[in-house]
């Protein structure tokens, strides 16, 4: 097919190759091409954060990145958090604190929170709320999410 591009990238530490059209977002490529559906689509225009991935060391909305931009880059998605030994502390805290209802926003919140805690282990409530302002949740009212992130930050110390 003319114009279809081969992309070689690293997802959760593993080399991944895929073919995509330049107009396809990274979110579409992850979900529909690579088949990793953990990353969610909420708004598809940068407002909700459901599609958050760690891309080149920074959290970004994967709906506002083109798949072709992943060439040679490294990223972490929600699938990269749990290990064979168990859940990531953030995932464990979200369960324990009942920080989700429908769950659509959850991967985005957890990946965004990981981006924060990886660079700033010491966080307070105001910092967590500010950091997560780009993630929307229609169900929980946010309090339990913020508590879960603070709880995980304690566990991770």
């Amino acid at each position: 097919m003319p114009g279809v591009t081969h992309v070689q990238t690293t997802i959760n530490g593993e080399e991944v190759n895929f073919l995509c059209e330049p107009r396809q977002s990274l979110l579409e490529c992850l979900r529909d091409v690579v088949g990793m559906t953990g990353t969610k689509e909420g708004c598809n225009d940068g407002n909700c954060g459901a599609c958050t991935v760690i891309f080149d060391g920074r959290i970004v909305d994967s709906c506002l990145v083109l798949g072709v931009e992943a060439q040679g880059k490294e990223m972490t998605t929600i699938e990269g958090l749990a290990t064979p030994e168990g859940l990531h502390p953030l995932q464990q805290s979200f369960l324990e604190q009942a920080a989700l209802q429908c769950g659509i926003c959850t991967p985005g919140f957890i990946v965004a929170a990981k981006g924060l805690l990886d660079q700033e282990p010491d966080v307070d409530e105001a910092r967590v709320r500010h950091w997560l302002a780009g993630n929307l949740c229609r169900c929980t009212g946010y309090d339990k999410i913020v508590r879960a992130v603070l709880d995980a930050s304690q566990k991770m110390k």
Binding site: G49, R58, I59, V60, D61, L64, V65, G134, N135
Partner: peptide
Amino acid sequence: IGGIQIQGR
């Protein structure tokens, strides 16, 4: 400008 995700780009 935007939130942290937007500021990353």
